[in-house]
Design a protein around this nucleic acid. Sequence first.
DNA 1: CCCGAACGATACCCATCGGTATCGTGCAGC
DNA 2: GCTGCACGATACCGATGGGTATCGTTCGGG
Lengths: 214, 214
Amino acid sequence: MAASVGRPSRVAKLPPRERILDAAEELFQSEGIRRVGVQTIAERAETTKMAIYRHFETKDALVAEWLRIVAAEYQAAFDRVEAEHPGRPGDQILGLARFIAEGLPAISHRGCPFINSIAELPDRSHPARQVIEKHKAHQAHRLVGMCTEAGLRDPEQAAAAITFVLEGAQVSTHNGSIDQAGDRLLGIVEGILAHHRSPLGESRASTDGTARAV
Amino acid sequence: MAASVGRPSRVAKLPPRERILDAAEELFQSEGIRRVGVQTIAERAETTKMAIYRHFETKDALVAEWLRIVAAEYQAAFDRVEAEHPGRPGDQILGLARFIAEGLPAISHRGCPFINSIAELPDRSHPARQVIEKHKAHQAHRLVGMCTEAGLRDPEQAAAAITFVLEGAQVSTHNGSIDQAGDRLLGIVEGILAHHRSPLGESRASTDGTARAV
DNA sequence: CCCGAACGATACCCATCGGTATCGTGCAGC
DNA sequence: GCTGCACGATACCGATGGGTATCGTTCGGG
C-alpha cells in the first residue's frame, strides 16, 4: 500500500503540495497569516520556497486555498450532522452547536480561522475574503433551512440568533472573557430552539405573524 | 477660546500626541495594525516618525494605548446606559444592545477593534492583548452584575448568552453573512431577557433551581 | 533676552518579506 | 541509456518594516 507513486525518502512522505498545505494550515492557524513568511512555511513543509511558488501563484492564493479547505471541513460537519440526525433538524442544530463547542478548546489558543483571517485581510477584493464570505453566506443559508424544517417560528431570526451565538462563543473563548463556554453554548442554543418552538414568543410579539424583525 | 496653549500654526491643531493617537485610531481601524507602518501614521498625523517615538516607547505601546482609549469608550457606554436607566438593569442591557447595534454599520467596514487586534496579535504577552483581555473580563463581570440586579434566573448564563450575541452580531456583520443584524440583535437580546425572566426555563430545567448550566 | 526642551526633517541601520532567477539532481518513461 | 521534468538549494532583488542618530528650528518660562 501507498507504493503507487511518490516514495521520495523513507517514512512515507506526502507529496509536496499536501505538505505545503499542512504546514500552512498549522502556521497560519497558530501564528496568523501575515506573521508567517513563505520561507517559514517551506521549512515546516520540508521543502523550499520555490516549490511553493511552483504550486501556488502567490502567497495570497495559498491562503485562499487553505481557507477553502477549512471551509470544506465545516461543510463536512454540516453534512455529518445531517446524516446523523436525518429528519430531525432540531438535533442537527444541536449537533452543530456540539461541534463548535468541542472545537472551543482549540479556539482558545488562536481563534477561529475565518474571524482571524478576515481581520488580517481588510481588502474585500482579496481572494481569501471572497472564500470566507461565500462560505459564511452558504452556512447561514443552510442554517435557515434547518430552522425552517424544524418548524421554528421566524426561522431567519432563529438562524441569526444561533449564528450570533456560535460566533460569539468563539470570540469570547478566544479573548478569555467567558469560561466553560462550551457548556454554556449548548444550553443557550437549546434555549433558542425552545424559544422559537413555543407557540408565541412573549417579547411583545403581536398576532400578525410577521413578528416585525424581533 | 482654545488659546491657552498650543497654537502652532493656523487652524487650531491638537498637540502632537493627540494627533498621533487620532491618526493611529483611524488607520488601525481601517487598515489593521500590522498593515500600517509608523511612517504612515506620522504622515496622517502631520508629524514625523521621531515625534511618535518621543511619545511612545514602541509601536506596540502605541497600539496598547489606542486600545486603552477604545476600551474606555466602551466603558463610557456602560456608564451612560446605567445613568440613563437607573435602577432598571433590564433597560440598561437593552441600551447596551442598542449601542452595539448602532455601531454595526461602522463594524461592517472593518470590524470590531478588539476582535481584529486579538487576531493580529497571537502572542498573549503583547501589551495590547492584556489591555483587551482585562477589558473584556471587566465587561463580562459588569454584565453579570446587571443580569443579577435584573433578577434574572442564572445571571451568569444570561450574561454569557448576551455576550455571545453581542460579539457574534459584530462578526456576522463584518463577514456579511447576516443583514439587518442590528434589528435582529435587539430582538434576540429581548428574547434572552424574557427567557431568563420566566419563572422556569422550559429546556429540561429541573426544579432544583441550580439550572445546571442551561 | 536667553536658554532649554520639544519639535520637525532627513538620513540611516538592519531585518524581513514576497517573489524571481539560476543551477544542480534524481527519477520516469521511452 | 538517454531525455525530460519536477524537485531541491541558493542567491538575489526591491520594497517595506521598526527603530535610531543627528541636525536645525521654534517657542515658552525664567
